[in-house]
């Protein structure tokens, strides 16, 4: 009896010890499956980055298995809601559009997440925004665009999308002579520029890389990014309000392709995940693969990303009003 009790006691201590050990970061993920939610359908930028991140994080978390799950729909809101609602045990992570910051600022219908409470793992890229003009247009520079007498057509994705919001707030605050035509999803905008029905677009630089290389258009201004070949939009305008909004758009571009988990991931596991993410981003092989995909890697990690997200969410009432108007466009 006594002996049995003793054995039981030892067993208990052993079990506790192993549990404590298991909670300690790396050990925890051994033999575990981590679900990585991508808020878009397979294919495209988020999916490519997501699959790269998942594959290389798995390599850097020995014994773990990463499974990519595509949860498309409602402009990334479904995927972001799913990440936010998952259990905060470190076994669910995900990626979604940074543009959801806009949706949260105006408290949009359907949003069931709070970006400030999410566990931020990191971001993989900077995706500066550019003003693109079709090659056949006489508009050669930002000054040319501002000087247009008649409004010119710009294409953006559907209302509520990040591309739409950015086009609306920038054209409004800069008073650009631009008519925003919506519903150009995917690469429809590029084709529309080739057809000549629209003159330009405000888009992410990476999505237009091939278009420019083929000589179909030119960049006339850029927001954020380290490239020196295009003038920064902030250097071309003086209005303080406009500069504030340009800064907001820039912060969006700076924290692109992010990876986040739900609130409440235990600190040691979060630290391990951030470590694995960092090791993945620093992997030369991942960098080479991303390079080939024309998907540049410019990472930042954990706390730094959390701060940037919080800063972007903290906007003046005026900006909030402008965003609300842009997101709730009613004709």
């Amino acid at each position: 009896m006594n002996k049995a009790l003793k054995l039981f006691g030892i067993a208990c201590i052993a079990a506790q010890a192993s549990a404590a050990l298991a909670d300690e970061g790396v050990e925890f993920f051994k033999g575990k499956t981590v679900t990585y939610i991508v808020a878009t359908a397979p294919g495209g930028g988020y999916d490519s980055y997501g699959r790269l991140v998942a594959e290389y994080m798995q390599r850097n978390l020995p014994g773990s298995t990463f499974v990519v799950k595509n949860m498309p729909g409602a402009g990334h809101i479904i995927g972001a809601n799913a990440v936010y609602a998952s259990k905060g045990d470190g076994l669910t992570l995900g990626t979604f559009n940074t543009g959801l910051i806009y949706n949260q600022i105006v408290n949009q219908q359907g949003v069931k997440f709070d970006l400030t409470k999410m566990s931020w793992i990191g971001k993989a890229a900077s995706d500066p925004r550019v003003v693109v003009i079709a090659a056949q247009s006489p508009i050669k520079s930002f000054e040319d665009l501002v000087a247009q007498k008649q409004p010119v057509n710009f294409a953006s994705a559907g209302p509520g999308s990040a591309s739409f919001v950015e086009t609306v707030i920038l054209t409004n605050s800069l008073k650009l002579p631009v008519k925003n035509l919506t519903g150009y999803n995917g690469t429809d905008d590029q084709l529309a520029m080739r057809r000549g029905e629209v003159v330009g677009s405000i888009a992410s630089r990476s999505s237009y890389a091939t278009f420019i290389e083929n000589g179909y258009g030119r960049f006339i201004a850029q927001i954020g990014g380290a490239e020196k070949d295009v003038p920064q939009l902030s250097s071309l305008v003086k209005d303080a309000r406009a500069l504030e909004l340009i800064a907001l758009v820039q912060s969006q571009g700076d924290i692109a392709r992010l990876t986040a988990g739900p609130p409440g991931i235990p600190a040691d596991r979060l630290k391990t995940l951030i470590g694995a993410y960092k090791a993945a981003m620093e992997d030369k092989e991942l960098q080479a693969r991303a390079e080939k995909l024309e998907r540049p890697v410019e990472p930042a990690y954990g706390e730094e990303v959390a701060k940037a997200v919080a800063a972007a969410l903290n906007q003046s009432d005026e900006t909030k009003k402008l965003l609300a108007e842009a997101l709730k466009k009613d004709k």
Binding site: P72, G73, A74, G75, I77, I78, N81, Q109, G110, G158, P159, G160, F164, T182, G183, L327, K328, K329, D330, K331
Partner: peptide, 19 residues
Amino acid sequence: MDPQTGTARFAGDYLFLWD
């Protein structure tokens, strides 16, 4: 989603109907 106005039609809070 109404392709023109961006409001959800007959879908309300049911996100799966937005597309």
